[in-house]
Design a protein around this nucleic acid. Sequence first.
DNA 1: CCAAAAGTGTTCACGCTACACCCATGC
DNA 2: GCATGGGTGTAGCGTGAACACTTTTGG
Lengths: 230, 230
Amino acid sequence: MTYTDKDTFYLAVDCVIFGFDGAQLKLLVYQRDFMPEQGSWSLMGGFLKKGENLDQAANRVLARISGLKDVYLEQLSAFSEVNRDPAARVISIGYYALINIADYDKKLLDQYSARWFALDQLPPLIFDHTEILEKALRRLKRKAKTQPIGFELLPTQFTIIQLRNLYEAIYQRSVDPANFRRKFLSMKLLDRLEAKDKTSSRKGAYLYAFNREKYEDLSAKGFAFDVTGI
Amino acid sequence: MTYTDKDTFYLAVDCVIFGFDGAQLKLLVYQRDFMPEQGSWSLMGGFLKKGENLDQAANRVLARISGLKDVYLEQLSAFSEVNRDPAARVISIGYYALINIADYDKKLLDQYSARWFALDQLPPLIFDHTEILEKALRRLKRKAKTQPIGFELLPTQFTIIQLRNLYEAIYQRSVDPANFRRKFLSMKLLDRLEAKDKTSSRKGAYLYAFNREKYEDLSAKGFAFDVTGI
DNA sequence: CCAAAAGTGTTCACGCTACACCCATGC
DNA sequence: GCATGGGTGTAGCGTGAACACTTTTGG
């Protein structure tokens, strides 16, 4: 071995898992079943194994608690304070995931003592997990303006109003319905479907679907998704 | 130890070091003096030690090759492909630094077989260092629009034209002089000095200094640095 | 017909863009 | 006085913000 005089470290991944219930942005956390801090609320995490890279480790951890694969998952950054985990020197790589909360298998909640919390009702989290969450939130707020990642949090069919509710939840402020609608439809990335959602009005609201192929096409031609001015 | 059944890993930091010579954005790289890939061009890097966090390790590495402290340094992300370093499993945390190239101690170039390269004249880099560089460039391009980090690459006194040259170098495109000047001065973060720089014209161009105190003040009051529309 | 939610139109102000123009200075 | 780069003025266009307005439907 070439680097035998160098130190080695435990490496963990911790996942900030976001979901959207139609009104609020929510976070999936669980109660640790091992020491230290057994019983305290924690982000879903796990240790990196020799044969895998960090993205693979994060996907493995996410699949375990959510039952989901092919989920939007993005690396945040490394958290390395010397005493962040009192039990041992562990460097953690933060990730955040966006999942459609309706796809989530509720049976897993009991199995892992997990719970969805609204962001303003979160219990205290262990270690530096609140810091990881804050980084995830900042990243989500930034990315949602310039990448079409909001759709990851919605069902495949959704109304413009639901989409607006999502953006209002992410940015914690109200958004003008008329301008939001125009802004999004002007990008021509949403296909209007025949069906209407009549659960919240007599008139009914058209359902739309995000046309990812069209987005990829336009992106290749220099188009930039942008809803900075909503 | 609590996690004794878990794997451990070497952890490295690799620094993308940017400088600006007045016309071009440049990158400081060096020739490795140890195996593997001895003699190949590489980002400046080093291994994390037990008693320090990643930011400290990156600053240590940077101080060694540049002789500089208190340099702008920001974490990019983790690079963890299983075979990225053929000699051993090493997870690297990428960083990028912005330094005033005039402050740089040229004596260190020989000492470390280091060299400044223009971005379009870079030699091949080892491992995944080109990927780290690309991430650094994307980050720099994004950040320079919304944070006053460009000044880190300039002397404390500079003309508006020099500042514009820097932005043109970062974004690889020409920028309208009139609009750039107005945009920057409208933020009122630059103090105009008495002195003029007469090296490139008879008339002379006023020197300016970035007023960081004013920036901090305004930021606290909700002001957002923004040159997106240059 | 009415209430309520979905969806459209219209005006205004501001900021980016482009480019014409003026200014200061050394030779 | 004129060439050269530094610096200012300004008209036009596009877009976000605000809010009034029309549409649709079940009761």
